[in-house]
Design a protein around this nucleic acid. Structure first.
Length: 477
RNA sequence: GGCGACGUAGCCAAGUGGCUAAGGCAGCGGUCUGCAAAAUCGCUAUCACCAGUUCGAUUCUGGUCGUCGCCUCCA
């Protein structure tokens, strides 16, 4: 079966092939650690994880690199000269480096809770300043960079393919940028982006600073991804993932820097995840759907969901209800739907585990549908439909030899079905005895005693299901 | 202002130029059941609106309305 993936570069689905057989070099744009990640951010890491797991499902080894952007970026107002992380540090009266480490830890904690496979290499921008400086030197040598009194810039007119990914003409950008005040009068083109900022003028008090051939300062906003991805994965990557917002600025810049420095193709498949948008979260507020943003007042963290009693994996399940390239509307109703759906999936796994059986030929059709779905540009809604159809057919036929298939699917789904089913059915002598006692009571039609035992087991977290062929049970947590 | 995306049942959504328009959740009505739960069966969509192309459009084209995103650090 061929794996087809949508490449933003060509705006179409393409059959995937890797540079090196059996191996996929994958880079995922990681978090900026100046604040908590919200569930919208997390959605795109779930997308990258599904991509990685799908590649692994089809037999690839996937060395994956993720950056951690711990160099402060500018605040929205370019003129302010303040730095997001410094602002945060000031606000909390803590050291900027502590802040970065703290949010990095929280981020990877969230990643773990969502059962996202950790990247093979996790790299911090602040630990790769030398590589970035080397990259900028190369760009000077090849005539792409120039220095002004304030900074070093990449001259976008020296790189004709600059607009290939964004498909946004430079003229339009220039027009659009015309009314903006250009802070640096020496900048050649409005679209030129900084490779290195000097710690002078508005950045005179910038806390994070390093020596460089262009004076003390700090790296530009996009160099780290180029420098680190090429350091760990080579000059040409198979796949580069990120959020759709990167299609217009960050990724074109990465391409320009990387290809400008090496003269080689930087990335073969660019893949971008769509945003989570927030629907009405409450009845009385007239907040229409919009993207979740750190300054939007609709900031939901994974911890927010956990505090409300949701399993983090129910959020993962929710993400599968929409295709990764389509926006997903978050509402509490859809969150509840996902939680219920995930619960019944786990219940089924526990049921199948208890009853068991040989796999029957009809299972093959569902395997096929599942695999076709993930191979078709990670169509998780279809894949999930295949899972649900498998379950329904198993229940209808009362043939439960489907665990092998289910666990195999879960290598991509990452919903911990095996762990959950095993945990739910851990044998215990006391439980066995109580259940046997209850079955005896039921045989004698001693309903009062049977209900007492049911309640007693319920207090122990055991859920009972009486069936014609005996009583099934599972642990509720 | 420029560029782009989307509008499918109560909610989240997949999909297709023509067979019964996936799946989940919620709801209603049956079956099963000592109770409970689960399971199962059935029901719930003129695919935003208008026009065009076509033998035939939800799917293609144009327009209207609505929503959203990007153009600035942001998944």
């Amino acid at each position: 079966m061929s794996l087809n993936l949508y490449n933003t570069l060509t705006r179409r689905k393409e059959e995937f092939t890797s540079i090196e057989p059996g191996k996929v070099r994958m880079y995922t744009c990681g978090p900026t650690v100046y604040n908590y990640a919200h569930i919208g951010n997390l959605r795109s890491y779930i997308f990258a994880d599904v991509l990685r797991r799908t590649l692994e499902y089809f037999g690839y080894e996937v060395p994956q690199v993720m950056n951690v952007t711990d160099v402060g970026h500018l605040t929205g107002d370019v003129d302010s000269g303040e730095d997001k992380m410094e602002l945060q540090a000031e606000k909390e009266g803590r050291d900027i480096w502590d802040i970065a480490r703290y949010f990095e830890d929280v981020f990877f904690d969230d990643i773990e809770k969502l059962n996202i496979e950790p990247p093979n290499v996790r790299c911090r921008a602040t630990e790769h300043i030398d590589e970035m400086i080397e990259l900028v030197k190369k760009l000077f040598a090849r005539g792409h960079a120039y220095e002004t009194a304030q900074a070093v810039y990449f001259d976008v007119t020296t790189f004709p393919k600059y607009t290939e990914l964004s498909r946004q003409s430079l003229e339009d950008k220039m027009t659009a940028a015309r009314d903006e005040v250009q802070e640096d009068p020496e900048k050649r083109n409005p679209a030129d982006f900084a490779l290195w900022f000097k710690a002078i003028g508005r950045f005179e008090h910038h806390i994070m600073r390093w020596e460089s051939p262009w004076g003390v300062g700090f790296p530009g906003w996009h160099v780290e991804c180029s420098a680190m991805s090429m350091k760990y994965l080579g000059e040409t990557l198979d796949i580069h993932t990120g959020g759709e917002d990167h299609v217009w600025v960050h990724h074109p810049n990465e391409i320009a820097q990387s290809e400008g420095a090496t003269g080689k193709k930087f990335v073969r498949y660019w893949m971008h995840g769509a945003f989570l948008v927030v629907g009405k979260l409450s009845v009385d507020e007239d907040d229409e759907e919009r993207r979740m943003g750190k300054s939007e007042g609709n900031f939901l963290r994974l911890q927010t969901l956990i505090d409300k009693g949701y399993d983090p994996l129910a959020y993962r399940y929710l993400c599968f209800s929409a295709h990764y390239r389509a926006k997903l509307k978050f509402t509490w109703e859809s969150m509840d739907a996902a939680a219920s759906g995930y619960e019944s999936l786990k219940d089924f796994a526990a049921r199948a585990k208890q009853i068991g059986g040989e796999e029957q030929p009809w299972v093959a059709e569902h395997r096929k549908k599942f695999e076709e779905a993930i191979a078709d540009d990670l169509n998780m809604p279809q894949a999930l439909a295949a899972v649900n159809e498998l379950i329904r057919e198993a229940d209808r036929r009362k043939e439960y030899g489907v665990l092998e298939a289910l666990y195999k699917f879960d290598e991509v789904l990452g919903l911990n079905l095996r762990e959950s089913a095993e945990k739910a059915t851990i044998a215990d002598a006391e439980i066995d005895n109580l259940i046997k006692e209850r079955e005896n009571a039921r045989a004698e039609k001693n309903w009062q005693r049977a209900d007492e035992l049911r309640n007693q087991l319920a207090e122990m977290g055991i859920v009972l299901e009486d069936t014609p062929s005996g009583t099934l049970w599972r642990r509720s947590n």
